[in-house]
Design a protein around this nucleic acid. Structure first.
Length: 272
DNA sequence: CTCAGATCCTGTGCGC
DNA sequence: TGCGCACAGGATCTGA
């Protein structure tokens, strides 16, 4: 569900709502069975700690506490909401953080997300973060880097840019969108890309992600930011979800096919 | 090592 | 109206 722009939007919203270093008074775990089970001693360990800052790495949110870092992931359908009063609990409210200034609620119908814990300053060595590739908006993600990773790769270029070991944060929506902007077919073999094509693709990924962040992300169905508001990048989608609709550039009907288990969209005339 | 496919879950929307 | 099926923004594991 949430890709980098959505996670970054959630991070910014929560950072604003949390205020200055709230303390965790208590935690209520209603459903510990997330993709990674919630640790049994989570409540005991975190009670009394403060939330100092909220960072993002890839699609993970990193919560800096006094003695630990909380690593959380939204999976496909996870969301955080902040409430200043204790309101009616909703279906799939799995974990509730009772803070000095309000309630922080993790809701996730499909339970593909998780909340886990590592010792302070150890997060980069944790199993979920240590194999991650470069951030797409970092200057390390450039034409040479991508071209090198394409060498000899039998897989498709769409699978490659969604591979979090190479570059993080690009999910199913923005992969299709970036490939449209770079005029490349999603099914093109990664090893056949020239350096120039890699250069175009890198800048397409960067510009799409930046624009999506500016718009507060993309809401297809259930994504909501921390304030409960949708993202507006949906209006700017060129191909994703537009099967049989006319390409906005050349009027050719957009094609749709499942590629590597994921729904994929492209314009057969604009992309080669 | 590389790559494709199955898998973890629930909700929604479609065709019949 | 109701049922069954396909599909959904992610990441990890298995096995060929």
């Amino acid at each position: 569900m949430p890709e980098l722009p959505e996670v970054e939007t959630v991070r910014r919203g929560l950072e604003h709502l949390l205020g200055t270093q709230p303390q965790i008074n208590n935690i209520h775990v209603h459903q510990p069975k997330l993709r990674v089970p919630v640790a049994q001693n989570l409540v005991q360990l975190l009670r009394g700690q403060h939330i100092h800052s909220l960072r993002r790495r890839a699609k993970y949110l990193l919560w800096d506490l006094d003695n630990h870092t909380l690593i959380t992931h939204l999976g496909m359908t996870g969301s955080w909401r902040f409430e200043d009063r204790n309101t009616q609990p909703r279906k799939h409210d799995h974990v509730i953080f009772e803070l000095t200034n309000g309630y922080l609620v993790y809701n996730d119908p499909r339970r593909f997300g998780f909340i886990s814990l590592v010792e302070k300053n150890c997060e980069t060595q944790s199993s979920c973060l240590k194999h991650l590739g470069v951030e797409p908006l970092d200057k390390k993600f450039n034409a040479n880097y991508l071209h090198q990773h394409c060498q000899g790769k039998q897989t498709t270029i769409k699978s490659l840019i969604m591979d979090q070991k190479i570059v993080v944060g690009v999910g199913n929506i923005y992969a299709s969108e970036a490939l449209f902007k770079a005029k490349l077919r999603p099914s093109k073999k990664a090893k056949t890309l020239t350096r120039d094509q890699c250069k175009n693709l890198v800048s397409a990924i960067k510009s799409i992600l930046k624009k999506a962040i500016e718009s507060g992300g993309t809401t297809i169905r259930d994504y909501k930011n921390a304030e409960g508001k949708p993202g507006y990048f949906y209006q700017q989608l060129q191909v994703y979800g537009r099967c049989n609709e006319k390409c906005r550039k050349c009027k050719t009907p957009i094609k749709n096919k499942t590629l590597a288990q994921r729904s994929t969209y492209w314009c057969p005339k604009c992309q080669h």
